[in-house]
Design a protein around this nucleic acid. Structure first.
Lengths: 247, 247
DNA sequence: GAGTGGTCTAGACCACTAG
DNA sequence: TAGTGGTCTAGACCACTCC
């Protein structure tokens, strides 16, 4: 949503907007770095920083000798939409919903201590929510916040509000996130709350987000009913963010 | 495997090796950009290029005001390991295997034409392989190559050799890849070849790789038996390569 | 041969962290 | 206040694409 302060971030946003508006057409060629630099009165280095952002998301190509080419003109997803189910659903023009199954502060287990880098004897804010899309349940979300973060959330009355947005408004900065994607078999709780048979294969996304110091802000595990969502990743040799792991 | 020609790529590799060797310790602080530049007799810009590579893979942090910190010391995965099942398995010290179910050149369907950007009336090299890990079947791999690429592969006698490695040896350059991950229900063919019940939820990875001009080199769909592999992605606000999609 | 993106340099200023 | 990474500039040379 908010454009960054840096010139290259604002420039990236401007170019992205032009691409989405079809300014260069699908398969269109972008202006040269040189001319973009002149048009926006910045140096070539700044233009390159901006284009690197778009390159990393697979929006444009990059190849020595020829102009950059537009690969897609569709809306791209922000980092925030990846962390917030609510923002993601809204951006897709769908009606997000949430029903809290439970939400309470409890002592951290050994696993929690490791996942959230807590001190021994720490507490966590443990939330289980059933997520709806257009009033149909599609996902079960188990979220753990360090108690310090959780207490901020407990002050919020509204169940349907985005936790992520609320935390950002409170000055909590999300810096990095690590996502693990695999399949898990529906247990009796999943089956009851999602209305599916026990043993059905659910798409699972386990996620941990950290603040700029590397301190974990949230650990969560989402289980999606099959056929509702997929995840996609763009990769190039220079920056490879996806890894395949042995389970 | 082969380090790139660029100074920053070789430097990134050198620093990565030092990290993996535990040179700075887990949670250790890296030398400043300034001192790295002096040590390696390069400019700070080149050092920053190198560190950006490590940053993108989640190996090190990046935060204004403080030294960079090592996040992980474990082996990182190369772009090639993401494209080649064989290389990936070997890197994990496991025994990869492949049994070809079928492999033939056939006319492209309409779907193939779109996926591989073929001309009307084009042909594809269609391969179905059962993949083994330590002699146990774990994945079914349906691969489509444009006939032009496929003919290169047909010249190879050995079934167990990595197709990706063979193509690279033949001068084919992989530039970008797009991966889509979701769950799919095992059909009768999957069940028979993987030895699982029909309807079991399989982890599916659909992948398309392109050459530097953006021309598709391969389209493939892998279906993994649950519990064998997972995928992980590292994301940060500046470069967000993961997206969640509505199926 | 002209134009393009990839790489590298050298220097500058700023925002932020930490002692 | 000193040190650090983030950003921006200006200029250079090269590898590559395409005419």
């Amino acid at each position: 949503m908010q454009a960054g302060d840096a010139v290259y971030q604002r420039l990236a946003e401007a170019i992205r907007a032009e691409i989405e508006a079809g300014r260069f057409g699908a398969d269109g060629r972008l202006p040269s770095e040189q001319s973009l630099a002149e048009q926006h009165s910045v140096s070539r280095g700044t233009v390159r920083n901006a284009l690197a952002v778009l390159r990393a998301t697979g929006l444009i190509t990059s190849r020595r000798g020829t102009r950059r080419v537009v690969l897609r003109t569709d809306r791209t997803q922000s980092f925030h939409e990846l962390l917030s189910f609510t923002e993601w659903a809204r951006a897709h023009g769908e009606q997000p919903g949430a029903e809290t199954v439970h939400a309470h502060i409890r002592p951290a287990t050994q696993a929690d201590i490791e996942r959230l880098h807590l001190d021994k004897g720490g507490e966590v804010f443990d939330i289980l929510r059933r997520r709806l899309l257009n009033e149909k349940p599609i996902m079960l979300e188990r979220t753990l916040y360090p108690a310090k973060v959780g207490r901020l959330l407990l002050a919020l009355p509204n169940d349907s509000r985005s936790h992520t947005a609320a935390l950002e408004a409170a000055g909590i900065a999300f810096q990095d996130s690590e996502h693990i994607i695999d399949v898990v078999s529906a247990d009796p709780t999943d089956a009851r709350l999602l209305g599916c048979p026990v043993g059905l294969g659910l798409l699972r996304e386990t996620r941990r987000a950290t603040d700029p110091t590397g301190a974990p802000l949230v650990f969560s595990e989402d289980r999606f009913l099959p056929g509702n969502v997929s995840f996609s990743v763009h990769n190039s040799p220079a920056v490879s963010s996806l890894t395949r792991n042995r389970a």
